[in-house]
Amino acid sequence: MSLNVIQPKPRLSGRELVRIVLSMSVACLAGAAVLGLVYLGTDRYRRASAEAAERGAIHDMLGLEADARLLEVRQYLVPGARRVVYRAAPLGATSGTAHEVTFTLDGALAGERDVPVAVPVGKELTPLGRMFVAARAGQPAGFVVQGETRGYKATIRLFVAMKPDFEIVDMRVIELQDDPGLGAEVAQPWFREQYVGRTAEEIARLDVTRDPMPEDWKQALVALARRAPDGPARHRDLLQRERTRPIYAVTGATISSRAVTEGVRKTVDHFRRRWWLLAPHLEGSL
């Protein structure tokens, strides 16, 4: 390291010391100014693109038209009070009103009110989860629910899309930190599309196998994921056979495959119970 050779240094004169301090301060101030400007310039785009990506994923998973109405419902825990608050507002809204419904932990209604979207939730509330409700003509047209599960190395976050009768329409892995080629393969289309078309009851009993996946089923799943024109038909035909069979694990990533299956099961199960409580109170917002 030629940069860091320790050399004996001559003593500094007072004037030089002032110059050094000045030089460092100017560098730091100029740096801070540049960073502040860049932050102000990019932050808006960062938020916008994060929101657009989320909205795009939801639209794509549910097959929604561009102007579909999307409601975002966030769930919070009121620590110490044994209460859960749901706050529903149109996705990405910065103005207007949000509808807040509060339940006790045992499922009894504890309160309901409208609040302006601009008012942030209390700092003491602990965020629990998020779900998105697509609405058509005042009726729910589909749900996307965020779930998480403990993967092989770290937490895996999922989006599970359901029809109003809780049949799975799509599943996406939105965050995982596994090895590429092994655990990370659970994000592959052929793996995630296996959940599509199964009902909530089937998901609740779903198992995972290490058997190799039949080649025709794999091709049908890939076709479905690529939105090929004959994809849905091929998938429907084979689903009759596969419906009663377990999920085929990714070779070399059985634990991740089980974790994802457990995550989907939990997400669907919890959402069903919550929606059953929540639905009557959100009719006005759809």
């Binding site: 860049v38 932050y39 990019t42 932050d43 785009y45 960062r46 693109s49 990506a53």
Partner: peptide, 8 residues
């Protein structure tokens, strides 16, 4: 920051 905003 720029990459986070434009190539998320």
């Amino acid at each position: 920051m720029s990459l986070a905003a434009f190539a998320p």
